[in-house]
Design a protein around this nucleic acid. Sequence first.
DNA 1: AACGTTCTTTGCGGAAAACGCAAAACGCGG
DNA 2: CCGCGTTTTGCGTTTTCCGCAAAGAACGTT
Lengths: 200, 200
Amino acid sequence: MSDDVDAVLAAVGPRLRALRRRRGVTLTALAETTGIPVSTLSRLESGHRKPGLELLLPLARAYQVPVDELIGAPADLDPRVRPQPFTRNGMTVVPLTRKPGGLQAYKHILPAGLTEGREPDPRSHEGYHWLYVLRGRLRVVLGEKDFVLAEGEAAEFDTHLPHWFGNADDHHVEFFSILGSQGERVHIKARFRPDDDRAL
Amino acid sequence: MSDDVDAVLAAVGPRLRALRRRRGVTLTALAETTGIPVSTLSRLESGHRKPGLELLLPLARAYQVPVDELIGAPADLDPRVRPQPFTRNGMTVVPLTRKPGGLQAYKHILPAGLTEGREPDPRSHEGYHWLYVLRGRLRVVLGEKDFVLAEGEAAEFDTHLPHWFGNADDHHVEFFSILGSQGERVHIKARFRPDDDRAL
DNA sequence: AACGTTCTTTGCGGAAAACGCAAAACGCGG
DNA sequence: CCGCGTTTTGCGTTTTCCGCAAAGAACGTT
């Protein structure tokens, strides 16, 4: 577990030194191109200095190598997305995408009768929304409109429009939703929070 | 220059927070799976804590995302390798590979008469060596053997054998050399240094 | 609308790491 | 053996980190 991390951490210094030597660069020269003092570079390569991002980023640029390559982190990423569903207001949300940026795909599950008798509570946020009903009938409140999507039906809209989803009847509803990419903003939860929105 | 780095650095916190929210994970839960205390996570996401590797690595594993993706470092790497030749003992070395790990390719240039009258000084190190003479005639001292490679000729050997290269006559010599990958060790300079060898 | 729960932020003081500088140590070639 | 370029290290000061626990916010419920 943590051994793994420690191993990578301990290997970063030597790895950096090897890379530098291989390129025929001196500490002094590297210090010039990165703006990092020689002493710090020395300590970093010998493991007497923690490899912080403020050091790794300039180095990655100097060496023209991604950070992961720099630190030699094992690229043991499972290509399959392992969904970690969570619940928000009784609605189960299954994130189907992994990467922080770009499109975000979810599957939403509304248990039977979840929104029974509830007041629609439309919210708005940045982005563009596309959705597709897998099961059940989805009530969509969108701006002034209030309509129902049946199984296999789809919809798309700009999420600046206040919107809200609910069960159309007393059966449970499942639907895909794909969020994108209006200035790389993110849909996160019902209420829009300024700082969820900062860096995609 | 440094603005760029600062920008990325400042964006890491918010980016981490956005990612966590998107996954529907609480600080407490994340603290459990990563072993990082809640307070630290909070400070990290709010930018009051430096994003050190000892934090980013567990996070990258928890989120199943490479570190570069985590921090949103611009992937503006030039696919072309931009060689940065350097000189070692009068011999010009042109690194043709960029990645720290795996195979390493070089072009070596020995100016005319560089090794004239010099004593061969064979050294050994870890790895496997393959080479190809582009121009001139290359003298290769390899263990007990001492031979000459002409243009277009190639050789390969285990670098545990002490070896040395020189001009076979008074013309300049150019040759490719590809180093690999015996336990991921690296050819760096004439003399073998223990710590050049640690982490590929 | 007030409540309780859960999640998140923040203040604190001691401990640890970082900082740049300059001197010392090292490596290598002459 | 000397000299130069490179790298390491000692030092005192300054900054950051640390976990804890209390305070504060957000949210769902009564």
